[in-house]
Nucleic acid binder design. Structure first.
Lengths: 349, 349
DNA sequence: TGACAAATTTGGAACGTTCCAATTATTTAG
DNA sequence: CTAAATAATTGGAACGTTCCAAATTTGTCA
């Protein structure tokens, strides 16, 4: 079935030039005569030649493999799917192709896939590290000069670039908005306490509480898995407190959706009976009912930026690690029961 | 920064054996003495050697690159994200790594990414073809002996394996269920008429209509983009018909969600005022409000099966193209206003 | 036209692995 | 103890490209 491969030598032969010339044409070198170039290109098309990057990589530097890796901790979360799409867009148009793997929060799996990607010679890696990833896990990778950009989560002590959203400011905004609507008992729901994201967002929550003259009570901070199911669990616990909160900021949109589910299970309507704000602005946030008020981080844009950052580092040879924080903005929709929506809601009744 | 690479020769030297022996160890050959193997492995770890698959591929057959490609037409659709996760699971544990690309329904982009993947020497490809893909687009790929498995959509005339869900039977089930609930005017909403998926599902709809003694009227078949926005548009058009439908089967879940949105915009509550059934059973289907009655195709399982099929073909050398249709089942939830849910609904009032 | 410069082309040595045939070391059988 | 068989190891060619230094062709100017 598989007829034998057409190589650069076959092309050279058919075009009546040397393999070196063909190679030059392949690389778009300006050194070759226009006529020759045309002839070679014609033969290439005619014989159906396909470039063998493996062979080329053997001779060239590491950083020219035109492969980047992207490994995320949970691809079923649409935030990461979006992120991957963003990355794909920019690497694709830069002529790269991406290895994508999902770790499902397993550091073992993560170690394996990164090792596998290294064997294949990736020029760079975009990583949303699994929970529990340590700087040591990235040690050999960075030592070998492969640029790494961490997204979403940082790894303490790792000398790699990172792109995270402005978690603290974002959560600050969310709390301020709720306080502005008159809420005093605002809960912080969801997330694993040992993650940087949790810490940052919680810090923003606390900042804002004191800034708005409220008391950040520890029992209003309820951690859980950062998932829809986690959200349900968290609101369950919040609703049995002696002094129930009247509003909540959630670690992310998934948790927020779960919180809405949980509220309904208790005959409470999110938006009118209880205000909830998410974080991320995943696609479903705007179409859900009620539409979710959330902090928009534009996952696809974040993917694009991460890819650009990575490509910059790849091309720069050995740029310094760079930490960029991506700004976020509050998107007010219905789930927080904002004034404008209240009017609309009343009009319906 | 990047210190020079450790090669098999360095290992050989340090372990006091020849490079051939090291190579044998790397491949887990039984020909090498246990003592030697242990010594070599120790050195490998010690020097931090990383296997260079590019070099190995140069010498080995095409089919051993341990890379498979997966290209989908819309990664932002969580159906495909799920599918990719399924594929990743099985290829990962088979020691493969996957190139993943998104075409966004562009055949040009698709052509580019497939070409790029070929250059990198993929051993096989899982493809959910962009709209408008023709058999000719896959011609060179299959001619070069690279196994291809089409998923979700087939490409007429292409001699490649395919894995599609049983669209016809699934839609048949959906319609029969609605008819059983007493609905007579059932619309078929969403999808582009020039796709095989549309044709199959529509056929199932028509089958079932006549089987249930109903008349399949053409004005009840309303095509649109197979997206949430398309669903909104489709239901808009359905609601201005002289004789409004009272229920709808939708091309997929995305359309169904859009239909629900559109219904609410007209003060109609999906589930009680109008029955809607989707297709795919994406993750959100069970947590949405109302939970979506839909035809479950288990996207992740489908990804796993596609990957298994592909790996089988890769290992077989040159297996025949195989067309497998994956069975589906109706999952009754709230959006169709099924009896069990009506009771629950009444209890709430 | 000759000399020099510029433009183009080229052979061969790498790159890091696998594979083959051949070699050497170790057992086993007689 | 030797021959044959078996186990283990090995050097070198090959894979398809790029890179370098050198060679060849073409063009320019006096």
């Amino acid at each position: 079935m598989s007829r034998e491969r057409v190589t650069v030598i076959d092309i050279a032969h058919a075009a009546g030039v040397s393999k070196s010339t063909v190679s030059l044409v392949l690389q778009g070198s300006p050194l070759v005569n226009e006529g020759t170039r045309a002839r070679v290109n014609a033969v290439i098309r005619e014989l159906g030649y396909v470039y063998n990057r493996g062979a080329a990589n053997l001779r060239q530097s590491h950083s020219k493999s035109k492969i980047i890796g992207i490994v995320v901790n949970d691809l079923t979360n649409s935030f990461f799917a979006e992120l991957a799409v963003g990355v794909d867009m920019v690497v694709q148009s830069a002529g790269y192709v991406q290895f994508l793997s999902n770790t499902g929060e397993s550091v073992d799996r993560q170690r394996e896939v990164i090792a596998s990607m290294r064997e294949h010679g990736i020029s760079g890696l975009i990583l949303s590290p699994a929970r529990g990833t340590e700087a040591a896990d990235l040690k050999t990778l960075v030592a070998s000069g492969i640029p790494v950009v961490n997204v979403v989560r940082q790894v303490a002590g790792a000398k790699v670039s990172s792109l995270v959203s402005d978690n603290r400011t974002g959560m600050h905004e969310a709390v301020r908005h709720l306080a502005g609507l008159g809420h005093g008992r605002i809960a912080f729901l969801g997330g694993f306490p040992d993650t940087a994201v949790f810490a940052d967002r919680l810090a923003g929550y606390r900042d804002a509480m004191v800034a708005m003259g409220l008391v950040p009570q520890d029992d209003l901070v309820i951690s859980s898995a950062p998932s829809r199911a986690g959200g349900v669990a968290a609101i369950e616990r919040a609703l049995v407190l002696n002094e129930r909160p009247t509003a909540a900021v959630c670690l992310n949109d998934a948790v927020a959706f779960g919180v809405c589910d949980g509220l309904r299970a208790h005959r409470l309507e999110p938006g009118s009976d209880f205000a909830v704000i998410g974080f991320d602005d995943v696609i479903e946030a705007q179409t859900a009912v009620p539409a979710l008020t959330t902090i928009s981080v534009d996952p696809q844009g974040m993917g694009r930026r991460a890819a650009q950052l990575l490509l910059k580092q790849i091309n720069a040879g050995n740029a310094e690690a760079e930490a960029v924080v991506s700004s976020v903005r509050l998107v007010v929709r219905q789930s927080c029961g904002a004034a404008s929506d209240k009017r609309e809601r009343l009009a319906l009744l």
